[in-house]
Amino acid sequence: MSEQTNHTEGEPRVNPVLPYLREDRMPHIWCPGCGIGTTVNCFARALTESELDLDKVSIVSGIGCTGRVAGYMNLDAFHTTHGRPVAFATGLKLANPDLKVVVYSGDGDLMAIGGNHFIHACRRNIDMTIVCVNNFLYGMTGGQASSTTPDPATTTTAPYGAFEHTFNLPFLADSCGAVYVARWTTYHVRQITKAMKEALAKKGLSFIEIISPCPTLYQRRNKLGDGLQAMEYYRDNSVVKSGADTREVEIKYQGEIICGKFVDRERATWLDCYNTRNAAAIGARYRPYPWRENGEGGVK
């Protein structure tokens, strides 16, 4: 965690994000200089500032370094299978629409093995927030190429340099129907926090891509320095263009990183459409889902 707990006298000061974490699971597995912990810090702050009832917030992760986030959050947390957190979260959300559901995973998990689930969740506009920490490779398994590794970065499975065309994630989310799309780097902690707050408040599928350093595998193998040098690169090469056309925000190797909020629009969610369609077809007999017992609270 980036914040220090400094105390000289009196009661020890508690790190403000500590209540959001499972302290009994610390230390975490992330390497020094890794950006995932920074994003978790932002997420904890976004939860505080959102004033959400944390008992109603569920976090779902897949597999990978970012996939471990769910396990460290003091929320109802689900560490599912590789690539499938979005599909799990779809069932979770539709079974109890009162839950605030957040999917938190990496580029390998969400966009390669889980790509099909991602695009369909965007198309359906399932009411959930998806945070994708993009470190340009598979970290947990030792640094293999992912669908976002830019040409010519080297990875263990692209020893002569990556050469495939990459996914432009904001464009993918936008074109598939996400209602909120933003990108920031782990240098932009305030902007990430604000984006997460907005995403949590947004009805429908909100998507945030966070560019994050992997000093152990990506930085070192490509001779890009450590975590600090990654921050300097993000600071010097990020260009904030909120409202930019997502077709224009593709990331090139060590090129400029276009950040900002690209999409913020209204579109009926899956559940809205489900109720609208059924009400139109079935008529007055139709009771909208979820059926409320005694006016409010849980679902039948």
Binding site: V60, D76, F78, T80, T81, R84, A87, F88, A89, T90, G91, L92, K93, L94, A95, N96, L99, N116, H117, H120, W270, Y274, R287, Y289, P290, W291, G298, V299, K300
Partner: peptide, 25 residues
């Protein structure tokens, strides 16, 4: 008061249902 969703494949179906179970269905 039930929900059916046709998922994008059987992989998704077989885990969406588990999400629903953990939400109480």
């Amino acid at each position: 008061g039930g929900v059916f969703i046709q998922m994008e494949d059987e992989i998704a179906s077989s885990i969406a249902l588990q999400g629903a179970v953990w939400a109480g269905k």
